Simulated scan of single mutants.
Amino acid sequence: MTKSYEFNWQRTVPAFLQEGASFDRFDEDPFVFEPSCVFKVDEFGFFITWKSDGKEGQVLECSLINSIRVGTVPKDPKILSTLEAAGKTEAELEGRIICVCSGTDLVNLSFLYMVADTADTAKKWLEGLRAVIHNFRANNVCPMTGLKKHWIRLCYSTNVNGKIPVRG
């Protein structure tokens, strides 16, 4: 007799990640700053999404994330002055920045920086996101779950009007 095997690919995504939280977001190269982005993780842990007022929804696939780290205070004066203009002084930034490192390989990396309102929020999200990423079993799901994953990506990639964009 063969032993039955149950393939359980899904990890529990904490409720606070699904509900979302507001972070300021910046990229270093090219410099982009978006205040008050609402970050969320979908119920299956496939994607991290964020959206700010007047901008299209953005999606980052969790399987492409290499690491999630505590970010350091930026050295670039342009970034610091923008954060200070948003009400976050350099002294307050310690322990409030999350750095999401992602890419298809270890050469072409992208860095996404999330700035939390409090150090407690940053720590909670850092630990929550670390628990969700590196789910290699999620890459081997059945075709129907794969279709659901693509549908979730489309739903989060909405344009400014909240509609799914039609590219053609």
Rank of each mutant, 00 (worst) to 15 (best):
residue 91 A to K: 13
residue 106 L to W: 05
residue 71 G to C: 07
residue 63 S to F: 10
residue 105 D to L: 06
residue 68 I to E: 05
residue 104 T to A: 12
residue 52 S to G: 13
residue 98 I to L: 08
residue 88 K to E: 09
residue 63 S to D: 14
residue 82 T to W: 01
residue 73 V to Q: 11
residue 94 E to M: 12
residue 57 G to C: 09
residue 112 L to Y: 08
residue 82 T to E: 13
residue 58 Q to I: 12
residue 82 T to Y: 00
residue 73 V to M: 04
residue 62 C to K: 04
residue 49 T to F: 00
residue 58 Q to G: 03
residue 95 G to Q: 13
residue 69 R to L: 04
residue 51 K to D: 01
residue 93 L to G: 12
residue 84 E to T: 04
residue 70 V to R: 13
residue 95 G to H: 09
residue 56 E to T: 15
residue 79 I to C: 02
residue 60 L to F: 02
residue 68 I to L: 01
residue 83 L to F: 02
residue 114 M to R: 10
residue 101 C to Y: 00
residue 114 M to G: 04
residue 50 W to H: 09
residue 88 K to Y: 05
residue 55 K to P: 00
residue 91 A to M: 06
residue 71 G to A: 01
residue 84 E to R: 09
residue 101 C to R: 15
residue 74 P to R: 10
residue 118 T to I: 11
residue 51 K to H: 03
residue 108 N to Q: 12
residue 88 K to M: 09
residue 63 S to V: 13
residue 81 S to H: 06
residue 59 V to G: 04
residue 92 E to S: 11
residue 99 C to F: 01
residue 91 A to H: 05
residue 66 N to R: 13
residue 107 V to D: 10
residue 78 K to C: 07
residue 74 P to L: 06
residue 73 V to T: 13
residue 71 G to T: 08
residue 79 I to E: 01
residue 72 T to F: 03
residue 53 D to I: 09
residue 58 Q to Y: 03
residue 51 K to C: 04
residue 75 K to M: 13
residue 104 T to P: 00
residue 109 L to G: 08
residue 67 S to N: 14
residue 116 A to W: 07
residue 52 S to H: 08
residue 64 L to W: 03
residue 81 S to M: 06
residue 95 G to M: 08
residue 66 N to D: 03
residue 76 D to C: 11
residue 106 L to H: 10
residue 105 D to F: 04
residue 87 G to A: 00
residue 116 A to T: 14
residue 115 V to M: 11
residue 52 S to T: 12
residue 49 T to Q: 08
residue 73 V to A: 12
residue 88 K to P: 01
residue 52 S to V: 04
residue 100 V to H: 02
residue 55 K to D: 09
residue 78 K to N: 10
residue 118 T to R: 06
residue 51 K to M: 03
residue 80 L to F: 01
residue 54 G to W: 00
residue 106 L to T: 12
